[in-house]
Amino acid sequence: MASPTCFRRRCAQLTLTLVLFLIPLVRGNSEGDALYTLRRSLSDPDNVLQSWDPTLVNPCTWFHITCNQNNRVTRVDLGNSNLSGHLVPELGKLEHLQYLELYKNNIQGTIPVELDNLKSLISLDLYNNNISGIIPPSLGKLKSLVFLRLNDNRLTGPIPRDFVSISTLKVVDVSNNDLCGTIPTTGPFEHIPLNK
């Protein structure tokens, strides 16, 4: 018969093994949790988000979500989906996201500053919504950004000077907002047709 010390040691080893096995599942779920928080903040009369099931290990099987080979979310495609509600700070947890497509909906509220965590973001398409507030200057940290389309909203304030340091920017559309101030003319803005 095993001694109590031996039994405790085996229990501790089994617990450690289970914890190590579950770590990848927890990591995968953090993206699902972030997206499910977005789902809860949106009104979805056409049920385009009905497949967004928070009990799954990761969201790669959900409609309108694309993942890479490591099951990390790289794309959210919810343009023209008749959604209303607001964006959530948890979107900033999608560290591998490259495309955030939420254009032509009725999304209100402000742009979360936490989007500055999306270091791989190539395209931020929030045009044709009802988004208000300022364009967060911290979005200037998105050094992979190529397309920034925020037109046809209710944004106020200036175009952040921080965008001048994004050398990859090719398209900036902030037209049909209530922006004020001067338009940047240096850095990538020297070559981009800017709609204001």
Results as ranks from 00 to 15, higher is better:
V146S: 12
H64W: 05
N71E: 14
N153Q: 06
G109P: 00
T66L: 13
V174E: 08
L194N: 03
S43R: 11
V174P: 00
S41W: 07
E190M: 14
R8W: 08
Y99S: 03
N80E: 09
L121A: 06
R154M: 10
R75N: 13
T74G: 06
L150T: 01
D53Y: 06
P188I: 06
T17L: 15
S43K: 08
R40I: 01
G109Y: 09
P24W: 14
R40F: 02
I107T: 05
N82I: 02
P137Q: 07
P136F: 13
E31D: 08
Y103H: 12
N29V: 01
G28Q: 15
V174G: 03
V57S: 12
L194H: 02
L126K: 03
Q98A: 10
Q13G: 01
E95M: 02
L38Y: 07
Y36R: 01
I183E: 08
P188G: 12
G28I: 02
T5F: 12
L18N: 07
L169G: 02
T74D: 09
C6L: 14
T37W: 12
C6R: 11
K104W: 14
L124Y: 04
G85S: 01
I131Q: 05
L121C: 05
L145P: 00
I23S: 05
L150C: 08
N177Y: 07
S123V: 01
P112L: 05
D77M: 12
G187T: 06
Q13K: 09
G28A: 15
L124T: 00
T66W: 06
R72V: 03
F189W: 08
P112F: 13
L25N: 10
F163E: 12
K119G: 04
N82V: 01
D152L: 09
N117M: 07
E190V: 00
P158D: 13
D178C: 02
P184N: 04
L148N: 06
A34V: 03
H191G: 08
N195W: 12
G181M: 15
L118K: 10
H64N: 15
F7A: 11
C67P: 00
